[in-house]
Each structure stands twice: as structure tokens, then as C-alpha cells.
Amino acid sequence: MRQRPESTADALSGAMDALETVVETHGLSKRYGGKALAVDRLDLHVHRGEIYGFLGPNGAGKTTTLRLLVGLIRPSAGTATVLGLPPGHPEGLRRIGCMVEEPTFYPYLSGRDNLRVVARYCGLPEARIAAALDRVDLLARANDRFGTYSTGMKQRLGVAAALLKDPELLILDEPTNGLDPQGMVEMRTMIRGLGEEGRTVLLSSHLLAEVEQICHRVGVIQGGHLVAEGPLQDLRGSAGLVLRATPEDQAERLLRQALGPDAVACRQGAFELAIDPGRSAEISSLLARSGVVVTELRPRERSLEEVFLQLTGTEPGEAAPVREAVS
């Protein structure tokens, strides 16, 4: 394993560890009937105030995990605490706003009446309903029956219901599903806003760009296993430089002399340098002084998509090092 330099991500990670853990699971497993494990010994940690992206391909076990966390289903093994309480505890549920899978409401009731039902279950004043509807821009259609809503409007009503409790923790399962591009942008802006208000958000998604835009930390699940967990920057791997130069052999010799052999890797005609990207000017001038022409020099940062594809086995054999780096 390559030693990573100290970074802001490390500092953030350390600070997060010191923070209160809002969602914590240990060896959490769920088996439906005699079938394979839907969730397999999951150890998840969501800290207070962060937006945590729960990432995984379809069928990876994301929704099952969320169902376990809100007490809809019981684990086959392992433990979980949500806001310091067992999943499904009334006191915990009172402080959680959640939307697991698609939002489900009563089709014969209006959007407003559906929120009245939720408010009554929670013992909340109905005065909050208008504000919640306004926040998701649904006030104008509040008196229409839920059955007549578009997918996007249903999704927004689901978020309004989740917000009604003024929750400390929001558990949102693919909240941008079914939304048009404009709706997606609005939803992401709203989720970011919720995070800025100090709420903890556990966001399940299979949309990498979404997670990349919104989340502070990410957990990647595949086949019921958590294959990685950590800040986005850590997941992407350590920072570095990508360099192309001619002549290549001379460039390689100079770089290995200056940076050490372990810090230089050559892939497909490009050098990957495991150094602080801030040293790019120094490297450029070193090579130029020796008559080496630098044709490309840029910071090296893997996209979350690359990381995700590796972790979920699309590029077998490369997942393990990333996991090591993260954990």
C-alpha cells in the first residue's frame, strides 16, 4: 500500500471520527427466507451533520439496509443504532424523516391531507404542513389528489413528509428518481441546503454524479458488503500528477532520481507521480533544464465513477488497493 501524504481529507476524516455517530451498524446482515444475504456483515458509520452517500449498483443492498435502519425489517444478524436508539424505536422515528424507495401515500387523499395524516401520526401541529409543501414547491397542487401527481411531484411530497418532523436525520432513498433534469438540480440543491442547516442526511443513490456533487462521505455497497467507506477525496485515491514528456526514457530516469522509484509509475505512455500536485512547477523546470520537453502536466484525480467501477468489480483485481487506502 502506498503511503498517502497528509491532506485536508485526512484532517476532515479525523474530525468526523471525533464527531457523534448518528447511524452505526455492526455486522448487520439480512437474509430473506432461504435466499442469499441481501446485506452481509455491514459496518456503517454516519456522523452528525454530514451528507453521507450510500452508493451501490441496483440490487446491491442499499434499500434493504435503509429498511433495516428504520425498523421496517429485522436483521438476521448484527446490530444497528440510529440516533443512539434501536431501529424503529418511536423516539428515534420521531427524529427521522425518511423516504424508502418510492414515496407511498393514499391516492384518494390530496397532498395536503396526506401530510395531515403524517402529522397526526407524529403528533405534529398541522400548521407545519404549508411550510413543508412550500419548501418542495407543491403548495399550488396541495389540494389535488395524490393519485393525480406526476412521479416528480410524488417524490417532492415524499420529501415534504420527511421534512415535516423537522428531523435531525434524513434518510432518502434515491430521491431524484423520476425527476426531470430541472427537478434533479432542485432536489440536490435542497439536500445540500438541508446539510447546511446541520441535519444529517443519509442519501442512497446509484447516481455517481449526484453523490459526487452532494456528499461529504461515501459508503459503497456491493453484493450486500460495504466495500469502501470514507471521504470522497480518500475514495478517489491520493493526489498526484500525470505527466507526458519526450524523450520518455530520459524523463523517467530524471523523475526516478528526483522523486524516488516508488513515486513514479509509467502507464500507457504517461507517468503517474505520487507527489503533491503543488510541485508541478518544480518538476516542469527540472525536466526543462535537462532538455526534456513536457507535453502534458496535470493533477491526477480519479473520478468517483472510476473508483466505483473498481470497487463494484467492473475492473476486477483493482478494488482491494482502494479499499485499503480508504480504510
Partner: peptide, 18 residues
């Protein structure tokens, strides 16, 4: 039919209270 039980059970009351 409407899958609303999950909405009901993730509010405050226990299943017995519902």
C-alpha cells in the same frame, strides 16, 4: 396494495399503536 404501510410504520407510533 398502496405500500403505505412503510410510510405509516416509519412515523412515530409502534405497530401495536397503529
Amino acid at each position: 396494495t398502496w405500500s403505505t404501510l412503510k410510510t405509516v410504520f416509519t412515523q412515530r407510533p409502534r405497530r401495536s399503536q397503529v
